Amino acid sequence: MTEPHATRALRLGTRRSKLAMAQSGLVAEAVSQVTGRPVELVEITTYGDVSRAHLAQIGGTGVFVTALRDALVRGEVDFAVHSLKDLPTAQPEELVLAAVPEREDPRDVIVARDALKFTDLPRGARIGTGSPRRMAQLNAYARSHGLDIETVPIRGNVDTRIGYVRDGELDAVVLAAAGLNRIGRIDEVTDFLSVDTVLPAPGQGALAIECAADNAELIAALAELDDPVTRAAVTAERSLLAALEAGCSAPVGALADLVADGQIVKEMRLRGVVGTTDGTRVVQLSTTGPVPDTHDGAGALGRALADEMLAQGAAGLMGERAH
């Protein structure tokens, strides 16, 4: 006798990393409450998990996502949880982004030796990051403020990266606040980087819950976890990224936020940046517009800012990264 559909455990596809498991565990609890069904985690290894090459070398786009999406299409899992910043901007027709829950802190943070702030690091400080976006902005800030730093490309999980500081190999590493929050290690942060210093990756701090486009019942249930403000913001950011024709490993930062007058939300502001990884050339612009009440409205804001950035030479800066 087959198990009744209503009581069968929903299968949630997730990467195996500590952070991915923590994120997926939070979503599993929320989905179980919404659906009244148990949720089991199905661990899936992605290419980005097994490759030791730097993301810029292996292409970045989709390396943490493709295996999860393949499992969804094959019906091996019912839905999957991604870090939204890892998700390619092109959406496969057979899958749907069913929910974008409320965003965590989107900022980047520093974990440094001796509890140092970024601006207090000694001359010649070595700062580890696997992100060309972070390299570009840290180096640009250092140049404009007379700081002497060296950005060092690294890979690995949170333990590995913080270990470089603990072992004295690096003076500091840059990580995402959201990830450290989700695994309960935010107290190890020595400095929160203002978004005026380093704009986060498009979608940073947000999760994406994806399922098959033909599963109307599950789509409706997952939609209850969707946060409209977060979805509008990340839609604007990802539309900027897509219009720049850049992948998620490109040196592009973006952040959309709501501008309020007291309790009244007036408009949405979108900031974008692209630069060479050595920080010598940067294009950083912002735009504001009415708070989008549709997906298309948020997308239009992103495309408009991308057009302005391209007019200022943004495409050439991304191209220089590979030389």
Rank of each mutant, 00 (worst) to 15 (best):
G262F: 12
Q263C: 14
N157W: 06
A216I: 05
L218M: 13
P228T: 05
D278I: 06
E245F: 02
D227K: 07
A176L: 08
N157V: 08
D187S: 14
G184I: 11
P228Y: 09
A221D: 07
V282R: 05
T190C: 05
T288N: 11
A254E: 04
T190I: 02
G253T: 00
A254R: 00
G247W: 03
A236N: 08
D293H: 13
G262M: 14
A246Q: 12
F192N: 06
D191Q: 00
V274K: 03
V173Y: 06
L199V: 13
A236M: 02
I186R: 10
C211E: 01
V274F: 08
D257A: 14
L301Y: 09
A242H: 07
D226H: 09
G262Y: 12
N181T: 14
V252I: 11
R281V: 10
D261I: 06
L240Y: 11
L218D: 13
T277V: 15
A216K: 07
E188K: 01
R238S: 14
L258D: 11
S249Y: 14
V234S: 07
V198Y: 02
L301R: 03
G279Q: 08
A256G: 00
V274Y: 12
L270C: 00
G279L: 11
R269S: 11
D278H: 02
V252C: 02
L207M: 04
Q204E: 06
V189T: 01
I186K: 12
V229C: 09
L225F: 09
G279M: 05
R269G: 09
T235S: 02
D227P: 10
C248A: 09
A298F: 03
Q284W: 13
A243Q: 10
A206R: 07
A178V: 13
E210C: 00
V259R: 03
M268I: 09
P228F: 09
L180Q: 13
V165E: 04
